[in-house]
């Protein structure tokens, strides 16, 4: 198991590496002029050149990538106008527009997104599996039809519309905003409640349908019939034997969804005014802030690869037939 994790992590590093090279190349091919942006409208050629050399933009692309990688591994020095700043590893450069170290900006934004997504996931997974299971147990009854209808209805409204409606009309919810968990857990939670509910309830609709489908399949399995023939209660048949089998595919989707949402929580963050990764990525994209943008891509790929690993490891606990190695 440990060996497996080490091997997976090594392959994860290569995936992240390839992602970085690819996005680096894409940004270089794009007709952007970061030095010009930083320099502003009244720019002298000398100052432009100075900025370009301080950002190593005058170097060939391969050298730039190498410097960037070096920064991640051992740190890197930047010289602007004769002043040298050392950027500690893992160094992702400085923001063109804000001058702050990218690593610091990402580390500030990551907990925000993480809090939103994990909190939301707990809500939608629990609610979704619960209602989906009930719907499957009472399949084809009015209860089931109402559940399926409601989840379809919620799903057909675009997510950002729901988020906007919550932000505009749910006045009873506490004011949204970001407070680090360690500073004040109560404020942290109250500032995230609106985002959690929005993310949780809209996704709960999908999870209701996933769990219902998975549960209906599980309840049709031979081993559920065996369980019934044992003379145990129907509740036990459904909730012990059925749910246990139905959970595995739903957990797979959960892992991929969480990874996706960690890199795409843009609507939630911007509507509820939470300074997370999505907002950061959008802002840096709009301002050609390449180091920050690259940083968010890096975090995104790391998150995706890690979540896949987590799902695979979770399998070994869910399904005894799965052995990693």
């Amino acid at each position: 198991m440990l060996l497996y994790i080490v091997r997976r992590l090594l392959s994860a590093i290569s995936v992240v590496f390839v992602t970085l090279i690819a996005s680096f190349a894409l940004f270089f091919l794009a007709p952007t002029d970061p030095a010009g942006v930083i320099c502003g409208p009244r720019c002298t050629p000398e100052r432009l050149h100075d900025i370009e050399s301080s950002l190593s933009l005058d170097q060939p692309p391969v050298t730039q990538i190498a410097l960037y990688m070096k920064g991640i591994v051992v740190g890197r020095d930047f010289t602007t106008g004769g002043v040298t700043r050392h950027c500690d590893a893992p160094c992702l450069g400085y923001s063109y527009t804000l001058g702050q170290p990218v690593t610091k900006m990402l580390l500030a934004a990551l907990p925000v997104t993480l809090s939103i997504v994990v909190g939301g996931a707990i809500i939608y997974f629990t609610v979704g599996v619960f209602t989906g299971t009930i719907a499957a147990r009472y399949r084809a009854t009015p209860l089931d039809r109402v559940t399926v209808g409601a989840s379809l209805l919620i799903n057909s409204v675009p997510y950002f519309v729901v988020a906007l409606l919550v932000a505009l009309y749910a006045g009873f919810l506490p004011q949204s905003g970001w407070t680090p968990l360690l500073t004040n857990p109560l404020l942290w939670a109250s500032g995230l409640v609106a985002a959690w509910l929005t993310l949780g309830l809209t996704n709960a609709a999908s999870y209701t349908r996933y769990s219902r489908a998975s549960m209906i399949e599980a309840l049709g399995q031979d081993f559920v019939r065996t369980a019934r023939s044992k003379g145990i209660s129907e509740r036990r048949v459904v909730y012990r034997h059925g749910v246990r089998a139905a959970l595995t595919p739903v957990v797979t989707i959960l892992g991929l969804d969480v990874a996706y949402q960690l890199t795409n929580a843009l609507f939630t963050e911007s509507i509820f005014g939470l300074p997370g990764l999505g907002v950061l990525a959008l802002r840096s994209f709009a301002q050609y802030d390449l180091p920050v943008l690259l940083g968010t891509v890096l975090v995104g790929s790391v998150v995706l690869v890690l979540m896949n690993l987590v799902v695979d490891i979770a399998y070994t606990f869910l399904d005894p037939r799965v052995r990693l190695g």
């Binding site: 031979d222 081993f223 369980a227 019934r228 003379g231 399904d319």
Partner: peptide
């Protein structure tokens, strides 16, 4: 069920719960 009468099913592979 299971006391007065019990049943053995056709395919033990699918009739036993894989996770227990």
């Amino acid at each position: 069920r299971g006391v007065d009468a019990a049943m053995i099913f056709q395919d033990p592979q699918s009739s036993l719960h894989p996770f227990f």
